[in-house]
Nucleic acid binder design. Structure first.
Lengths: 346, 346
DNA sequence: TTGTAGGCGTTATCAT
DNA sequence: ATGATAACGCCTACAA
C-alpha cells in the first residue's frame, strides 16, 4: 500500500485486450465506440480504480477547464456569496475554480495572478485590491488573450469585461435619503483608494448634494481603509469638527458601525444627532443599534453573472462583444439609523 | 498575437545552440552547469518570455507542490485568517494552495475532495462540514498515503493529524465564569452536529455544571445550526420555558448575537436577567450591546500550524509520529454581556 | 468500429 | 560540463 501504482489507460487496455486508444475514447463516451466495449471499459476502469491524469490530459489538450479567482479578502458574507455563485455556475459547466486572496495588496494580487497564470487557468475573475492602480500585472493574460473579467472592484480595460452595480446611483440614493430626512450637512467616509466603487460612491454623494443645493466641501470627506477601526478614527475626526454634521454616508457597513459605536460612546444620539447610511448590507448592519440603513446587492448574483460571462466567452457561446460592462441592480434598505423623522422604526 | 506560441526549453536550446537537457538543468540551478551557461540560459529565458509548463513538470515528477484546503465556509474572519496563515507558510515553502468551500455540506465536501484528488494535490487540509459523520470520502487519499490534516473541526482517524484548541476546557471556563457571576441555571445553545467542537463544548459545559453542583438537564440544551436566525429561534424556545434561565452559553458568537437581539426585543435585560457567553471572538461580538464575552483563538495560528505540520510531513522533515493531535491555546475574553456582578464594564 | 503512432514539455539516467 | 534519449499518461489524425 505504501507504493500505490496509478492505473493508466494502458493497464485497462491490456486487461481488456484492446488498444489504449479505444479505452481513451470509451472513457470519453466517444460515439464511434460500441456500447458493449464502452461498458466493459467503464467497468474495468471502476474496478481497477482508474483516475484520469489531469496533467497528461492538460499537457495534451493545452487547456485546463479551470478558472482562477482573485478577491481582496475572503472574510465577508459578500465574498463568500460571490464565490458560491462562481462555483455554482462554473461547476455546472464542467469547470473547476481556483480561489486566492490578495489581502488588499496589489503585490500579492500580482503574485496570485502569476501563480494562476502558471497554472494555465483558462480565464480569470478578479475583484481588485485597494491599492491596485493599474493592470500591468495582468499583461501576461492580455498578451495571450486569456479572458479576464473584473467584478465589483473593477477597472476599465480594452479587452476586459466588468460586472458591477451602479455605485453612483446607489450612493446618490443614500445621500438623497439623508437629505430628505432633514440632514443639512452630510459627511462622507470612504476609502483612500482609486477604485471605481469608491470614486463613484463619492461622485453620487456629491451629485446628490449639488442637486439639493447643498454645497460640497472637501473637508467633509474622510478617508481611511474602511475597517471598523477606521470608523472609530473617523468618529474622532467628526467630533473635532467645529460644527457637527447631522448625517454620515459611509462607503461600507463595517466602517459605519465602527463610527457609530465610537460616536455613541461619546453621547451622540443616532439618528437624532447624526443619521447614518452604510453600504453592503453586511449582517452586522442588523446588529448595531439602531440598525443601519444600507445598500444591498447580491454577491451570489455577481459571482454567477461574472462566471457565466467568462465561461460563455471561453466556449464561444457569447454573442456579446469582448468589451462589456454588466450592471446589476442594487436595493436600498431603510432602517432606523437614518430615520430622523418619526416613523415606525424598521 | 491571437495565437501566442508558448516558449519551451527546446526553443531556448535552439537559440543558444545547446541541448534541452542543459537548459532544463540550468533553469533548475543545477550545480554541474557552469555559471556562464546558466547566465545565458536565464537571460534567454527571460527575454523569450519562457514559462515552465507545470503539466509537463508534474507529469514527469509525479507531484504538484500544491496542497488542497477544504473549509466549511469562507465568510468569517476566522476562516479568512486561517487561510492567510496557510498561504503564508505554504508559499514560503514553495507550495501553492487550492482553496474550496463545502458550504457545510458533506456531499459538497466529498465533491471537493474528489476534485482536489484529481488535481493530484500533495496533501490536504480540512475543516469538516456540519453534517460530516465519517471520512470515507477521503479514502482515496488514505489509500495512496496522501497526508490529510484536519483542523478546528476534526475527526479522529488513524492516519491523520488534528490541529485544534481544547474546546472542552474553553467551554468549561466560559460556563464556570457564568456560575461565578451568580447564574443558577445556564442554557447551552449548540449545533445539532456530531463535530468534535460541539460535542466537546457541550461536555465542558456539563462538567462545569457538575463540578459546581448544578444538575445538568437535557432540556437546557438547544440545538440548531448556529446562525443568527437559529439564535433568534433559540430565544423563542427560551422565552417559552416555564422558568427563564439566568445564563446562556452559546457555541458561537453569531448565534449568541441573534439570540441576544431577539431577547432584548422582548424586554429581557442582558446581563441582569440573562448573562451571555459566546465562542470565537467574531468582530460582531464587539458590536452587539452589551459586548459579548467570548472565547478567542487565532485562526492565523491554526492555519500556519496545520500547514507546517502537513508540509513537514510531506518533506520528511517531521520527527513527529504519523498520528498526532496538536492543541493550540485559546483565550477567554470577558465583556459586559456576562458581568452580573457590578464591576466596571469592559 | 478499432488500432498505430507521434507528440504535448519536462526531467533523469546514462553516456560522452 | 554537456548531450542524447526515454518516459511520464493522454489524445487524435490517420490507417486498417
Amino acid at each position: 500500500m505504501e507504493n500505490y501504482k496509478e492505473v493508466t489507460i494502458y493497464d485497462i487496455a491490456k486487461k481488456l485486450k484492446i488498444s489504449p486508444a479505444t479505452v481513451s475514447r470509451g472513457l470519453q463516451d466517444h460515439p464511434l465506440i460500441s456500447p458493449k466495449t464502452k461498458k466493459r471499459i467503464f467497468e474495468a476502469a471502476h474496478k481497477m480504480g482508474y483516475r484520469q491524469n489531469h496533467f497528461a490530459r492538460n499537457l495534451r489538450n493545452q487547456k485546463t477547464d479551470t478558472i482562477g479567482v482573485i478577491v481582496p479578502r475572503l472574510n465577508s458574507y459578500f465574498m463568500s456569496a460571490v464565490i458560491a455563485g462562481i462555483e455554482h455556475f462554473a461547476n455546472q459547466r464542467g469547470y473547476n475554480v481556483i480561489i486566492s486572496q490578495s489581502s488588499e495588496s496589489s503585490s500579492k494580487e500580482a503574485a496570485n495572478a502569476k501563480i494562476l497564470f502558471n497554472n494555465r487557468v483558462d480565464g480569470l475573475l478578479v475583484s481588485l485590491a485597494y491599492d491596485t492602480k493599474e493592470l500591468s500585472h495582468f499583461d501576461s493574460f492580455f498578451r495571450r488573450n486569456i479572458p479576464v473579467v473584473f467584478f465589483d472592484r473593477v477597472m476599465e480595460h480594452g479587452s476586459c469585461s466588468n460586472v458591477l452595480i451602479d455605485n453612483a446611483k446607489a450612493a446618490y440614493e443614500g445621500t438623497k435619503h439623508l437629505i430628505e430626512q432633514g440632514c443639512k450637512r452630510i459627511v462622507h467616509i470612504t476609502a483612500s483608494s482609486q477604485q471605481n466603487v469608491y470614486l463613484e460612491r463619492l461622485q453620487g454623494y456629491k451629485q446628490a448634494l449639488t442637486d439639493h443645493k447643498i454645497k460640497f466641501k472637501e473637508e467633509d470627506v474622510i478617508f481611511g481603509n474602511l475597517t471598523m477601526e477606521a470608523g472609530a478614527d473617523a468618529a474622532e475626526t467628526i467630533l473635532k469638527m467645529k460644527k457637527l454634521p447631522d448625517g454620515v454616508f459611509v462607503a461600507n457597513d463595517n466602517c459605519a458601525v465602527g463610527c457609530m459605536l465610537a460616536l455613541k460612546q461619546k453621547g451622540i444620539k443616532i439618528p437624532q444627532d447624526i443619521a447614518f447610511v452604510g453600504f453592503n448590507n453586511d449582517p452586522v448592519s442588523k446588529v448595531v443599534e439602531p440598525n443601519l440603513t444600507t445598500i444591498s446587492y447580491s454577491g451570489y448574483e455577481i459571482g454567477e453573472v461574472a462566471a457565466r460571462h467568462l465561461i460563455n466567452h471561453l466556449t464561444g457561446v457569447s454573442s456579446i462583444d469582448n468589451t462589456n460592462t454588466i450592471v446589476l441592480r442594487s436595493e436600498f434598505i431603510i432602517r432606523a439609523s437614518s430615520l430622523k423623522k418619526k416613523k415606525k422604526l424598521l
